[in-house]
Structure formats: structure tokens, C-alpha cells
């Protein structure tokens, strides 16, 4: 596929159960997004299918394991494998998360929260620049979903992301479901977040579903990526597109993965908002 920049359209996350059905049915998709780590092994089955699918669709590489916010050194091995994958499939977008997942050599297989401080901004900026230097490409940074905030945070998430863009030249991937989940859990307004975020830097939108967990104190939203996009998140998407119409959008579904037809229904629904 050509490396034409995505300026809109709706894609879906490529997941193992759908490899064959996408190859066979060739649905009309703007792009496919892969979890980079699942395709590192050039001899694995996932890479075999990716090699075929990348002939038909633009690919976006979405990392979940680089642990950019960790104070451990960046894994040279992980970064080298990511570069191999990027060189191999020439993705239209490369993204990672505003999070950390490892410390003292131990990894937690999760996107853990960070304190939003000047020190974190400086640290994270250096790491983003390291990755962009190695890859020779701009990367996008995605806002996480959060269940807590650090007491020592001194700025809101959107401000940290905007300043990260200014310091590193990275782009942004805005997950509207994550904003909604965090806003409900931590008590801020999505409208303020979206009014303040640097939309000129946003190159991709993620849409996904969440789960409600009821505790004695109240309800908390869990970012499970295991259900359809919720009505409030569709509302955020509609508002976002009214002001920023040309942005690539992804339907993301990672747990309890349904038949491909369900993802395509969500993809069509997103297209209808465009």
C-alpha cells in the first residue's frame, strides 16, 4: 500500500479471530491497526497474515509494551523489534501510550497511570524523542484511561499532551472512550478536555466500549474494550467531527471479541457520523 497520510476514514483493530474472514471478505476499511508486539516475530502466524493484509490495507502500528513513561531504560530489544516491524510494513501511523508498564525489570502488562508533573513531561519527552529518532518517524501518543490521579500532578492531562507535542513534535491519538471513562471516574468535563487539546496534532481517534463496575461507594467505569461504543462516546465523536472533520478513526475491540460483522457495524456507524 502507498504511504499516503490518512486524512479520515474508519478502520478497525486487527485481531487474530478475524484474520481469515478479513482476507476472504475484503471489507471496505480505511486501515487496519495492529498491536505492534503481536507481530514482532517474523516467523509467527500473525505476521504471515499481516503480510497478506498489508497488500490490501494501510496499516497502523499501535504499541502497548514500550513502557514510555517508565524510569527503567527503554528496552533496546523491544525498540529494535518495533523498528523491524515498521520497516517491514511501512505503517501510515505509529502510536504508543501516555503510560508506563514496567519498573526494575518487571513488566505488568498494563497501561499504568503517570503523575502529570514537569519532571514527567521532561522524562517522557526524552523517551518520545528517542523512539522517533530510532524509527525515523513521528509517533502518536494516546491518552490513557484512568481510575486514579497522583496527588503531585500539577497539570491536567490535556495540558501535558499539548506540551509534549510542543517539545517533541509527536502527534496525538485521542481515545474518546478513555476521556469519557476518566472523566466519569475522576470528575472532569470531557468538553473542557476536548476544547483544550491541540486538535491540530490529533491524527487519529479511538472509539471503544467500557464496562461498569458497581462498588458500595458508587459506579466506576473500566476500560475493557469489550463492548460496543457507548452513546455518550458517540456523542463526543459527533461533536469532535463537527469541529475536526478529517481525522482517521479506529473501532477498537480487544476482549470478548465478537464476529467481524459486529465490528463492521460499528465501523459503518462511525462512517455515518463523518
Amino acid at each position: 500500500m502507498s504511504l499516503a497520510k490518512l486524512t479520515g476514514g474508519v478502520g478497525i483493530g486487527l485481531r487474530h479471530p478475524h484474520f481469515k474472514s478479513i482476507l476472504e471478505s475484503k471489507p471496505d476499511l480505511a486501515f487496519l491497526e495492529v498491536h505492534s508486539e503481536n507481530y514482532f516475530n517474523p516467523h509467527g502466524q500473525s505476521r504471515y497474515f499481516l503480510d497478506q493484509l498489508m497488500q490490501q490495507y494501510p496499516i497502523s502500528c499501535h504499541g502497548i509494551g514500550l513502557s514510555l513513561g517508565s524510569t527503567d531504560p527503554l528496552s533496546a530489544s523491544h525498540l529494535a523489534q518495533l523498528k523491524d516491524l515498521v520497516d517491514h510494513c511501512q505503517p501510515v501511523l505509529i502510536s504508543e501510550h501516555l503510560s508506563w508498564g514496567s519498573i526494575n525489570g518487571q513488566f505488568f502488562n498494563d497501561l499504568l497511570p503517570l503523575p502529570y508533573t514537569q519532571e514527567l513531561l521532561n522524562h517522557f519527552s526524552i523517551r518520545v524523542e528517542q523512539v522517533q529518532h530510532v524509527l525515523g518517524r513521528q509517533i502518536l501518543i494516546e491518552n490513557p484511561s484512568s481510575y486514579l490521579r497522583f496527588n503531585q500532578s500539577v497539570m491536567p492531562e490535556w495540558e501535558l499532551l499539548n506540551r509534549l507535542v510542543d517539545q517533541t513534535g509527536c502527534g496525538l491519538l485521542i481515545d474518546l472512550n478513555n476521556i469519557y471513562v476518566s472523566s466519569m471516574n475522576l470528575g472532569f468535563r470531557c468538553s473542557e478536555y476536548l476544547a483544550e487539546i491541540n486538535t491540530a496534532a490529533v491524527q487519529e481517534i479511538h472509539l471503544a466500549g467500557f464496562t461498569r463496575k458497581v462498588l458500595s461507594e458508587g459506579e466506576i467505569l473500566i476500560d475493557t474494550h469489550g463492548s460496543r461504543v457507548s452513546d455518550p462516546v458517540w456523542g463526543l465523536y459527533q461533536n469532535y467531527l463537527e469541529a475536526n472533520p478529517a481525522v482517521a478513526t479506529l473501532i477498537e475491540w480487544d476482549t470478548d471479541i465478537p464476529p467481524l460483522s459486529v465490528l463492521l457495524e460499528e465501523q459503518q456507524k462511525a462512517l455515518a457520523y463523518g
Binding site: 505488568f108 481510575y147 497522583f150 496527588n151 466506576i220
Partner: peptide, 23 residues
């Protein structure tokens, strides 16, 4: 060092712990 809105710090840390262990 953390606060979890309506929930105690212990409760929200447990959510992250569950994600780690279960995944």
C-alpha cells in the same frame, strides 16, 4: 500518593492489580 475520586486508593489500586494479574 494517589486519589481515586469516590473510591479509596486501595480500591483503585486493586483495579490495576486485577488488570495485571488477570491479564
Amino acid at each position: 500518593h494517589v486519589s481515586g475520586g469516590l473510591f479509596s486508593a486501595e480500591q483503585v489500586i486493586q483495579l490495576y492489580r486485577n488488570n495485571f494479574v488477570i491479564s
